[in-house]
Design a protein around this nucleic acid. Structure first.
Lengths: 66, 66
DNA sequence: ACCTAATGTAAAATATATCATACATAATGA
DNA sequence: TCATTATGTATGATATATTTTACATTAGGT
């Protein structure tokens, strides 16, 4: 899986560190890092939690570029 | 996790059985069943494959009702 | 330059998603 | 009605997602 730059940008837009976001969605900072780098294939529930925390939808962060 | 009726409906719209869809996305029929029933928390990659097979987006099947 | 914060990365342990197999129940069409 | 198809469900095995811990590197601010 490729780097998820949309996730990184959405996080940056809210000026959150990976640790901040990790705390918000109840995972480790390393997990957020691994998702952004494309190293992890996260579950849908985690993806949803991330989207809610960042005020975006699944399509914004995890669907194909339009 | 609750039943995913949107997934079931999208599948029905194309007149596909769970087995048909399972074959298309390379999982077992039981996995599709479990996802529809809300018993499984699928990975984002599988969710994407399902959406592509059914010609819908992630938001259509896995995001909150709008 | 320097120090701290932020991020990357690895590896073993742990948790959880999925498979394989089997059986049960419901639905459908002739 | 009956036979077949479709779906539900369970359980142990297997595969994979995540955590934990530690260290390395990069980034940013003073």
């Amino acid at each position: 899986m490729a780097k998820n730059l949309k996730l990184k940008a959405a996080r940056a837009r809210l000026d959150l560190s990976q640790q901040d976001l990790a705390d918000m969605v109840d995972v480790t900072r390393q997990t957020i890092s691994a998702i952004e780098r494309g190293d992890y294939n996260p579950t849908i529930n985690l993806c949803r939690r991330i989207c809610r925390a960042l005020n975006v939808t699944l399509n914004d962060l995890f669907w194909e570029d339009s």
